[in-house]
Nucleic acid binder design. Structure first.
Lengths: 341, 341
DNA sequence: TTGTAGGCGTTATCAA
DNA sequence: TTGATAACGCCTACAA
């Protein structure tokens, strides 16, 4: 059994290199301020001792953790995996670590505040539209402003920095695609809104319908909830209607999947009997049968841009006075689940 | 513009409650050691000042970050999302934060070591079989042992704590299911192994074939790579063979999906012409057409158990002398992609 | 270019 | 039960 030596500190390195701790510190953070010869000696000593900087001490001293916190309603949703990946990579490139939090528990606003006030994280990447950005941003009564970037699929508070895709326009294009194929009876499975307004994708649907001079049949617009079971349930509901639409715009691919699945059980085939378009372009979309037509969300880009923006704000590169709003676009990906009528 | 007040420290609370900082600290960590009256005063002061503990200072003092690091080859893979979720939840229940790292970059072994040595994380949850657990566990020359739990889909180094599923047995059961349906010509798309041995799922396949007295036709065993394109490619390769197997055991659901997709393009329908069984039971599996028969990995359980074990080790609840090995089982989920011949 | 010294906010020890 | 004090490891004026 090897006895665990204490982890070396900057002092150990200093002793070994026969310099002061200050010099070691300089070599590590501003090498150019140290003569080449001592620098080499210090670097050697660092290697020999296996020294690693103690982040806790550093954070305490610097009042910065070089860590960002990513909060999503459920990281468990595959939708976030690509994003998470991008966040980690971008953060790593800037020398930041990433903490993740699932917005569960009593009062997310409360413990998020905790994270940021407690020098655990320097900024917040918010993927959860249900959190109160007002309280978070101003941090309520303490009045300490916290670097924050919102990147969820709803229209965020304009006072808050955000990186989003233009959901309304994308939804419109999805519907227009169906219209261009000759469909006039177009339904929609919507996604719940977390604020008082209807979700942007629902608004886009309505606008596109109106602009095309088409009626929105209330029984063809059914509320979903992001996942496959909700698409399944929507199909169930629709099967009760006297007449089926010829095309459906589903606000997420997962719902499209559940929807299609239930319909097939009832003998209704896509795209033969009904055209279906989804939203997101999740990885499996192109491998489905039929491959799913959808609006592709640039998830990697969302992750990277949001992270970059946040770190820019943390480091003072971006001004904190004017909120930053980045709007990315989604692309129509035509596959085989939609066809001309 | 509200001017950002400094975040309150324990001193501020102490002053306000007219006690010493030590007392405030006690109220926070060992309330029973403080009289009720002062305790109440302190708690009031905490509330009034909006005090939050400074984790950096605390970590420095305690030499513990109450944070664990989760490292996966690519968090981007949806397979990990459920696990990540479980890890976060379990960790939160124990008062730990979760950092995530994707095993990219030059030398993961190096920067992982960094994380742990630098008081950023107290332990490592390893989902990447390609990392060198030997070097990580002993941390090489420094000889500092680090709390580590491996939870990837390969047989880990027996010296390292691990939470895994019994891949070999599960693979055998998958094949046995096909055999029980009357199949004798059974192929396999394997997953790459990261050590010198073949992957456990491949071994299980071979064993089951041998036990059933069936031949393994080399041209029916093709190397895959976890994702859908590799399943696609495997199908491509197989289509070149003079004869097709009547059943295929795919080492992951993603590969099964890609495989099925390519075959369908060639007019080969599942389960009519070929039975397909996957592995993992990813969320979409039951919504596919046909719904996919598969071996379900208890991913949530893996995440929770691994986290629990790691924290037990960190906190000294579990002994660190004898490595802990938890083996979970996978369940066969029969759906419609397999049928009797 | 290098060293000295002080302090970041906590908690553990010891004494009262 | 409470308080004074020192120390955790680092960085940054300031001084030499």
């Amino acid at each position: 059994m090897m006895k665990p030596k204490k982890t070396p500190t900057i002092q150990d390195v200093a002793r070994r290199a026969e310099v002061s701790a200050a010099t070691v510190s300089r070599v590590l953070s501003a090498p150019e301020r140290v003569s080449k010869s001592t620098r080499d000696r210090v670097n050697a000593a660092v290697r020999e001792t296996g020294y690693t900087i103690n982040q806790a001490a550093r954070s305490l001293r610097l009042k910065a953790a070089r860590t960002i916190l990513m909060a999503a309603p459920n990281i468990g949703n595959p939708y976030y995996s690509t994003i998470t990946d991008a966040v980690i990579i971008e953060a790593a490139e800037r020398g930041y670590s990433v903490m993740v939090a699932s917005s569960i528990g009593d009062d997310p606003n409360l413990w998020l505040r905790d994270y940021l006030l407690s020098t655990r994280a320097d900024g917040l990447l918010l993927f959860d539209g249900s959190l109160d950005t007002n309280r978070l941003h101003g941090l309520g009564d303490t009045g300490v402003a916290m670097p924050l970037v919102a990147a969820y699929d709803e229209l965020p508070d304009p006072k808050v920095n955000s990186v989003i895709t233009d959901n309304r326009a994308a939804a419109k294009r999805a519907v227009q695609h169906l219209v261009s194929l000759g469909h006039r009876n177009i339904g929609h499975i919507s996604v719940p809104s977390r604020n008082q307004n209807p979700h942007e994708r629902l608004i886009g649907y309505r606008e596109a319908m109106a602009e095309a001079g088409l009626d929105v049949r209330p029984e063809w617009v059914v509320a979903g909830g992001y996942n496959m079971p909700s698409g399944h349930a929507a199909a169930e509901a629709l099967l009760g209607a006297k007449e089926l639409p010829t095309a459906m715009f589903c606000a997420t691919d997962e719902m499209a999947l559940g929807f299609m699945h239930r319909l097939r059980q009832a003998g209704i085939e896509c795209p033969r009997d009904i055209s279906i378009i989804g939203f997101d372009d999740i990885a499996v979309a192109e491998y489905l049968d039929p491959p799913l037509t959808t609006m592709r969300q640039p998830r990697e880009k969302i992750g990277r841009m949001a992270t970059r923006t946040l770190i820019d704000i943390i480091e003072g590169i971006a001004s904190e006075n004017e909120p930053i709003h980045v709007v990315l676009t989604s692309d129509l990906v035509v596959r085989q689940s939609t066809r001309a009528i």
